[in-house]
Amino acid sequence: MSHKQIYYSDKYDDEEFEYRHVMLPKDIAKLVPKTHLMSESEWRNLGVQQSQGWVHYMIHEPEPHILLFRRPLPKKPKK
């Protein structure tokens, strides 16, 4: 599979999560399941490479070739 064609967005966040999206080329996108969110082993098997802790959290129906990921931000110590 062509890992060079996978595009990784910059990371962005809110108060709770860090987010990123990953755009897959058409040949890989056709392998994305339409019935469920992928486990880490499933998206890694497609060639997506990112650190541990990312969760495929949403399917964007109009653009199924874009995978939406998030992971919890580290808890800030209370002052």
Rank of each mutant, 00 (worst) to 15 (best):
V32F: 06
E61D: 10
Y8K: 10
P64E: 08
E18A: 06
L46T: 04
K11Y: 11
D10G: 12
Y19D: 03
K75G: 12
D13G: 12
E16A: 13
M23R: 13
I66Q: 04
L73V: 08
Q50T: 01
Q50G: 08
L31A: 08
H60G: 07
H65Y: 08
W54L: 01
Q50K: 01
I59N: 11
K79W: 09
K11Q: 07
S51M: 08
P72E: 09
M1I: 15
I59D: 03
D14W: 02
H21S: 15
K79N: 12
M58Q: 13
K79E: 14
K26E: 11
K4S: 13
K26W: 10
K30G: 07
E61Y: 09
Q49D: 11
L31S: 07
Q50H: 07
V55R: 05
Q49I: 14
E15C: 06
V32A: 07
I28R: 07
F69R: 03
M38C: 04
Q5Y: 15
G47N: 06
N45T: 10
Y19M: 01
H60V: 09
H65E: 10
A29M: 08
L37P: 05
E63C: 10
V55L: 03
Q49F: 03
H3P: 15
L67F: 03
R71Q: 00
D14P: 02
K11C: 12
Y7E: 12
S2C: 14
H65P: 00
M58S: 11
S39W: 04
D27K: 10
L24K: 01
K75M: 11
P64K: 07
V32L: 04
K76Q: 10
Y12P: 04
P77S: 13
S9C: 10
Y12T: 13
V22M: 05
T35M: 08
K30I: 11
D27M: 05
D13F: 14
P62D: 15
D14M: 04
V48L: 07
H36F: 03
S39F: 08
Q5H: 15
V32T: 05
K11F: 10
E42Y: 00
P64N: 09
P25T: 06
L24P: 00
K11P: 13
V55Y: 07
F69V: 03
H65Q: 10
I6Y: 10
K78A: 12
H36W: 01
P25S: 09
E18Y: 07
Q52D: 11
P74V: 11
E40C: 06
S51F: 05
D27N: 11
L37M: 07
Y8A: 04
L31P: 07
S9P: 10
I66P: 01
L73C: 08
H21D: 14
Q50I: 14
S41Q: 13
Q50W: 03
K75I: 10
M58L: 08
K4A: 03
E15Q: 11
H56W: 00
D10M: 07
P62I: 13
H3M: 12
H36P: 00
K76W: 10
Q50M: 15
L67S: 02
H60M: 06
